[in-house]
C-alpha cells in the first residue's frame, strides 16, 4: 500500500505540501478564483497569463464545478464539485517532468516503489480555443495528473510555451490514503472526513443542477454575460470581460446538465464562449503590450 512508513497525509496536508513544494520552485502561490468554473485552467492566472512574453509561475487550488458529474453523493468516485491543484510555469522549464515527479515524492509516492508513466494525452479546450500536447501521468495504472505544454490559448499561438500541471486532489488523496470512497477521505488528520464537509452539498447541488435550476433564467444570464463581456471588451477591460466569459461557460455547463441543449445547439454555445474567450485573450495581450510600450 502507498506510504507504509508513516501516516498518510490528510487532504489539507497534501495541499500544504504542494504549496510548499511549488513555492520553493519560485511559483506565486495564489488563492482560488472567486467565479465558478469547470477547471483550474479557466483561472485568469493560467488562461490569460499563458499569453504574452512575460515569464510567469503560479500554483493554486481551484474548486472545479462539473454539473453533469453530480451523482447525489451516491457514487464513490464522482463529484460535481471537486478541487484541482494547478501549476503553470512560463516558459516551461527543462526539468518540468523531474519537478513533477519530485512533487509526487513529497506526497509520499516513491517512484522506485510505484510505476510512474507518461501516457499520451492531447489536451484541448474547445470553449477556451486552447490546445496543448502532453500526457496523463499514471501511477500504478491510475491517472494522477495531467501535464500539458500549451500551444494555443484563445486561438492565439503562445509567445512562450507554458507547462501546466493539474492534479485531481480527491483522486490523488484517495490513492495516497488508500480510501475507496471519496467521502471517507481524512480531511484534516483530526477526524474530519470529506463527506462531513461536502456530502450534503453534493446532494443539494445535484438536485439543483439536474432538476431545479431555472433554465429560462440560466439562458437569460448566458445572454447577459455574453453582452456584458462584449461591452467590456469595447472598453478594453480585459479582466472584467473575462469574468463574464467564465460565467457564460459555467452557465452553459448548467444548461447542459439540465438536458436542454441539443447536439447542434451545443456546438453553437461552445463557439459563442470561444468567441468571448478569444476577445478577452486579445484584449489581455493588447493591454500587456501597451503597458510595456
Amino acid at each position: 500500500m502507498p506510504n507504509t512508513a508513516s501516516t498518510p497525509p490528510s487532504f489539507q496536508e497534501l495541499i500544504l505540501r504542494l504549496h510548499a513544494f511549488w513555492s520553493r520552485q519560485g511559483c506565486v502561490i495564489l488563492q482560488p478564483y472567486d467565479v465558478e468554473m469547470g477547471a483550474g485552467t479557466f483561472h485568469p492566472a493560467t488562461t490569460l497569463r499563458a499569453l504574452g512574453a512575460t515569464p510567469w509561475a503560479a500554483a493554486y487550488v481551484q474548486p472545479s464545478r462539473r454539473p453533469t458529474d453530480g451523482r447525489y453523493g451516491e457514487n464513490p468516485n464522482r463529484l460535481q464539485h471537486y478541487y484541482q491543484y494547478q501549476v503553470i510555469m512560463k516558459p516551461s522549464p527543462a526539468e518540468a517532468q523531474a519537478l513533477l515527479l519530485e512533487s509526487y515524492r513529497e506526497l509520499g509516492l516513491d517512484p522506485l516503489l510505484h510505476d510512474f508513466r507518461f501516457v499520451e494525452d492531447d489536451w484541448e479546450s474547445p470553449t477556451l480555443g486552447a490546445w496543448g500536447l502532453g500526457w496523463e501521468v499514471w501511477c500504478d495504472g491510475m491517472e494522477v495528473g495531467q501535464f500539458t505544454y500549451f500551444q494555443q490559448v484563445g486561438g492565439i499561438s503562445v509567445a512562450l510555451p507554458s507547462f501546466e500541471m493539474t492534479y485531481g486532489l480527491e483522486r490523488l488523496a484517495m490513492y495516497v490514503q488508500n480510501v475507496e470512497n471519496v467521502y471517507d477521505l481524512d480531511f484534516n488528520g483530526r477526524g474530519v472526513r470529506y463527506g462531513d464537509i461536502f456530502l450534503r452539498a453534493e446532494r443539494e447541488y445535484s438536485a439543483y443542477n439536474f432538476e431545479h435550476a431555472d433554465t429560462a433564467a440560466l439562458s437569460r444570464h448566458f445572454a447577459d454575460a455574453e453582452r456584458e463581456c462584449a461591452a467590456l471588451l469595447d472598453r478594453k477591460l480585459a479582466l472584467p470581460a473575462y469574468d463574464q466569459c467564465i460565467k457564460a461557460s459555467h452557465l452553459f455547463n448548467l444548461l447542459e446538465a439540465r438536458g436542454v441543449i441539443s447536439v447542434t445547439e451545443r456546438a453553437s454555445y461552445i463557439a459563442r464562449v470561444r468567441t468571448l474567450a478569444k476577445g478577452c485573450c486579445e484584449a489581455w495581450i493588447a493591454g500587456e503590450d501597451a503597458a510595456r510600450a
Partner: peptide
C-alpha cells in the same frame, strides 16, 4: 510495469487492482 520495484511489485499490483476495482464499480 516499467520498473523492477524494490518490493517485487506488490505495491504496483495492489495499485492496479484498486484502479480496476474503481473502474468496475463505475
Amino acid at each position: 510495469a516499467n520498473i523492477t520495484a524494490a518490493d517485487g511489485g506488490a505495491t504496483i499490483i495492489a495499485g492496479n487492482e484498486r484502479v480496476l476495482r474503481a473502474r468496475f464499480a463505475d
